[in-house]
Design a protein around this nucleic acid. Structure first.
Lengths: 232, 232
DNA sequence: GGCCCCTGTCACATCGTTGTAACATTGCAC
DNA sequence: GTGCAATGTTACAACGATGTGACAGGGGCC
């Protein structure tokens, strides 16, 4: 859900440059949107809600800085990180760019590696490290910060998928979910796996939780599964 | 200790620039020291133990880079964050500056806002100064003052990077960190290295700690690493 | 210059995880 | 009880993530 590529909007009026950037980013696992103009960029933003924007300094019509400023002013987009791209020699613009609210600033030419590294850094800082509180249910505890699960204080060994599954259940208790819903929420929307795979992971999770807590994961016959403290 | 403004030492031979920076920083709640030369800077450092140094590239006598290198080499000042200031067009020096041990790098002209932002970022990353107590965990001890690590009283030979990595872990126990976060915190946000590099240094650290303590550094599959005394 | 240490990266080895299929069991409808 | 569908359980091969050793470049030191 989070690890699955973030969406990056590339705004540049030169198609080859956009393309080059897009290729680099896609290889790094990002999903790319491209826009040649401010107008196009804006509609992309509205339609697809990208996680961040790569914005060229030079754009036909409204300039990049101006656009950045506008994005930062609107509530909807104020939190969206922006990296500005500029040709070498326009160094003076740097200050303007950062003051317009850009989160970082890259001078062309740049290596794909540098781009990806900076992009990662910016995304990392922008992603609110929400105050992740541990969740505890009758002796079963999941601590997102430590990335650890304990059953009556004893550590529980589970793989990443089981961890996400359990986390989802513990944050959505008492409600039944179909296998399809679980695949959506835990695996991520755009993967194709058999629904029966869910059963197997449920089994693994139950086994890992042991007799002490396996009953918390209940089968809802004909529908799916439910995490509940009440007896079924 | 933290709430009260941090002390920042400004080293630049041009008084007006020092003044401008000082005003900006004081408005942001920092306490400023000024030095026009390396000698003056050095005595300020000895006398007042600033929390960080803003260092101009061009200085009479010893150059800024050289001074930075010297600071990083001496135990007393090795942990002190440095931000280098440079005039426009000396972009190439950037690499030199960072390699000399600077934590960040700002090109003149810069906005006060940028300066304060970067300074905050660097300070945030910096290990909390002040009373540097040795940290001890089940026979593994790290003494920041002596810059030394011992495992059951036997000295542990590690390089600078492994030392910083271990120090970070020991001051942030139990919590899981991604490779990206470790790069941010231990390497500094402005270097671009492969994430797998973290694995290699983890390996070197584990090897150096030996069987007695290597288990303290735990792999969190699919996520990163964690320093913990509890079994995984 | 020559030596040594540290660093970042690569290639390869190893290990854990994952999805699927095959088979066993359960529960429900009749 | 019988039959059928849904679910539980196990085994396994492929894949991805991590461990590991080796290497080249750079800088400090003499």
């Amino acid at each position: 859900m989070t690890k699955a590529g973030k969406r990056v909007l590339i705004v540049d009026d030169e198609a080859p440059i956009r393309e080059m950037i897009a290729v680099a980013l896609e290889m790094a696992g990002y999903e790319c949107l491209e826009a040649a103009s401010v107008q196009e960029a804006h509609s992309h933003i509205v339609d697809h809600k990208p996680d961040m924007v790569l914005l060229d300094w030079m754009l036909p019509g409204t300039s990049g800085v101006e656009f950045a400023r506008r994005l930062k002013r609107e509530d909807l987009t104020a939190e969206m990180p922006i990296i500005m791209l500029t040709a070498k020699g326009e160094e003076d613009n740097k200050v303007q760019g950062l003051e317009a609210g850009a989160d970082d600033y890259i001078t062309k030419p740049f290596s794909p590696r540098e781009l990806v590294a900076r992009l990662k850094a910016v995304l990392r800082r922008a992603t609110p490290q929400g105050v992740e509180e541990p969740i505890e249910v009758s002796g079963l505890m999941l601590d997102p910060v430590c990335h650890r699960v304990t059953s009556n204080s004893k550590p529980v060994e589970i793989g990443p998928t089981e961890y996400r599954l359990l986390q989802f259940f513990m944050t959505h208790q008492e409600r039944a979910y179909s296998r399809a819903q679980l695949l959506d929420q835990v695996w991520g929307g755009n993967v194709y796996v058999e629904e029966r795979t869910v059963d197997v992971h449920i089994r693994r999770l139950r086994k890992a939780l042991g007799k002490a807590h396996e009953h918390l994961i209940q089968t809802v016959r004909g529908t799916g599964y439910r995490f509940s403290t009440k007896a079924s």
